[in-house]
């Protein structure tokens, strides 16, 4: 018995939830990104006039967009589910007549929307200061979508697993943030010593930034096909893991 209206209602609930607190869910991350843009971009812009033919600002903005996509896709489902546990309403989610696949779809769709809003506003604001050659719009769209999907899946999984907000913050602070900052948002991977550049290729965020940066500017530090295969593979893997966790009721049903 499919329940499209129920699925849409849950999606709407998840979306309204973050829109009701837009100051912290939309404005704060956008302002954060703009501060990076101002502090690193404008100061280093003069010091580093060109990276393989593109300006430092052009180099950095795709990385900032990825940061917006990553953090918000991750935070939306994880915060929502942990908050439900805190508020004692997780039982409601398990009692409504929705299939687990429908709950999954609603949470992921809302997380993707939030990450696209933050990523999109970051991009539009950057357009006031710079322009791009847009080497491949399909690559921009596909990679942004896959990045949002991957971190929505991860956020959903962490929300299911976490007992408290500390668990969510732990993953964000000790895994996502280091991988993002070391993932080449602010510097080219090729500028690292050879050994470190090789290690960096195991950081999935390096591939995400590489793809988006290629789409916007044409610059690629790793072959695009390799980055696309890596991103698609880890997204499918993460999607399966988080769906199985939800489907089996792991950490949710007692």
């Amino acid at each position: 018995m499919a329940n499209p209206r129920g699925t849409f209602t849950l999606f709407k609930r998840e979306t309204m939830r973050f829109l009701k607190v837009y100051m912290q869910t939309i404005f704060a991350p956008v302002v954060n990104n703009l501060l990076y843009f101002a502090v690193f971009g404008f100061s280093l812009h003069r010091a580093i006039p060109s990276i393989q033919g593109i300006t430092y600002l052009q180099f950095m903005v795709p990385g900032l967009i990825i940061m917006g996509l990553v953090n918000n896709a991750y935070q939306n489902p994880s915060s929502s589910i942990i908050l439900m546990k805190y508020q004692g309403i997780i039982g409601d989610l398990l009692s409504i007549p929705l299939k687990r696949s429908e709950i999954f779809l609603a949470f992921i769709a809302s997380a993707v929307i939030r990450s696209f809003i933050v990523g999109g506003v970051t991009f539009l604001t950057a357009l006031f200061f710079i322009s791009f050659p847009y080497t491949s719009i399909p690559i921009i769209l596909i990679s942004a979508f896959l990045v949002a999907l991957f971190f929505s899946f991860l956020g959903l999984f962490v929300g299911i697993w976490a007992k408290e907000f500390d668990n969510q913050a732990f993953i964000q602070t000790f895994i996502i943030m280091p991988l993002t900052f070391l993932g080449g948002v602010f510097y080219p991977i090729t500028s690292l010593p050879a050994a470190m550049a090789t290690v960096a290729k195991f950081d999935p965020i390096v591939h995400m930034i590489n793809l988006l940066r290629y789409g916007f500017t044409g610059l690629q530090e790793i072959p695009i096909s390799l980055s696309l295969i890596v991103l698609a593979s880890i997204t499918i893997f993460m999607g399966l893991i988080s769906f199985i966790a939800l489907r089996t009721g792991w950490k949710l049903q007692n």
Binding site: F8, L10, R13, Q87, I89, D92, I96, P97
Partner: peptide
């Protein structure tokens, strides 16, 4: 189901809570 614990989704008002509930049941 009327559960024993009195807990609500604190993001929404009474009408929104009931409208959402209706939607979950396809109404």
């Amino acid at each position: 189901i009327v559960p024993q614990e009195v807990n609500f989704d604190s993001f929404f008002d009474v009408n929104e809570v009931l409208t959402q509930c209706s939607g979950y049941y396809g109404i």
